[in-house]
């Protein structure tokens, strides 16, 4: 039983009609529901008032809180059913992804290969005469063709 429990995250929005002093009570109530369903609370973040991006049930503000817990996957459906009866604007139960906080290491940006056309422009001793020779040869050939 213990071994096949999974970690979940449970964010929720409480209606702003609740007085500030009672918000903590509500979050404890939700934690108790989770525990009653066989969950194990891992972390609780107390609800904070915030603005919503759009209206939910004619409300523009809400208290947002979240809880992480461990629970057997087959109990989640029951928990959802229980939570639907609560006075919540919205809630979500999502599997928690592994949070591995690695130290910030900035990857070295693979620098673009140094422009290769610059060396080609550099006048190089052995290359120039060859070009000249080629040109002369070309000229000779052209003259031959034209002459004919």
């Amino acid at each position: 039983m213990e071994t096949d429990s999974k970690n979940y995250e449970f964010p929720y929005l409480l209606p702003p009609s609740i007085p500030e002093s009672e918000v903590l009570m509500y979050s404890r109530k939700l934690s108790k529901i989770i525990e009653d369903t066989g969950g194990k609370i891992r972390h609780t973040e107390e609800p904070k008032k915030g603005k919503l991006a759009y209206e939910i049930k004619k409300e523009r503000n809400a208290y947002f809180g979240w809880t992480t817990f461990a629970m057997a996957p087959n109990a989640i459906a029951l928990l959802e059913k229980k939570l639907k009866g609560e006075n919540l604007l919205r809630f979500l139960i999502v599997g928690e992804e592994e949070t591995q906080v690695r130290p910030q290491i900035l990857r070295t940006i693979p620098s673009r290969p140094a422009p290769t056309h610059i060396p080609a422009h550099r006048p190089e001793g052995p290359e120039k005469p060859e070009e000249k020779l080629d040109l002369e040869a070309l000229d000779k050939k052209l003259e031959e063709i034209l002459g004919k």
Binding site: P11, F64, E97, T99, R102, R107, R112
Partner: peptide, 22 residues
Amino acid sequence: QEQKQCYFCTTNRDVIDYKDGE
């Protein structure tokens, strides 16, 4: 001109937090 790098790869954030709306 320059290839952009993935924001999440460069900041080493393994999990993208849905709570961070900004």
